[in-house]
Design a protein around this nucleic acid. Sequence first.
DNA 1: AGAGTGATGGGCT
DNA 2: GCCCATCACTCTT
Length: 181
Amino acid sequence: MRRVRRADLARDADLVAPFLLNKLLVSGECVGRIVEVEAYTSIDPASHSFRGMTNRNAVMFGPAGHLYVYFTYGMHHCANVVTGGVGDGQAVLLRAVEPLAGLDVMVARRGRSRNIADGPGKLCQAFAIDLSVNDADLCRPGPIGLFDDGVAPPAVPAASLRIGISVGVDTPWRWTVAGST
DNA sequence: AGAGTGATGGGCT
DNA sequence: GCCCATCACTCTT
């Protein structure tokens, strides 16, 4: 099991997103297989980086391979993998993982035994991801990391297509592992 | 299965 | 003051 290389993440988010499918998110004893992601770039009006750098999204403009965590709806955290080059403002939102290890810990944190990590807020709660790990380097030893167990991403990832060519798109790019939900 | 909705707080115009 | 890259619960088919 090898750590994901930074060079693989230092590409555009719409390329990195499908690459991240089937990669492993590891935090302590908890391991999850990434099964749903969404790409966000600075030209997407739905992206936090669209209106430039602020205190909240600064990590998004930093080096690839770091974790961008934000707090939303007054109660949820969301986890993103920063991609592209410094200054780009690109990231891939982790929307769902399939729990592989540390299930008991995740169940305790979630307070239920089903739907443990099948949503961006849920997976953060299951993996105890909050602002304290914002900017963590996923490509170096630390509280949380990204690993490759050799299982290739789906040859043809299920993807929702962007509608139209204008900037005013409502649906960001989303990729899933077929049959994961 | 799908639609509607309250919780709850930080970020930004 | 309004807007969320959400969740879980309730009520309706």
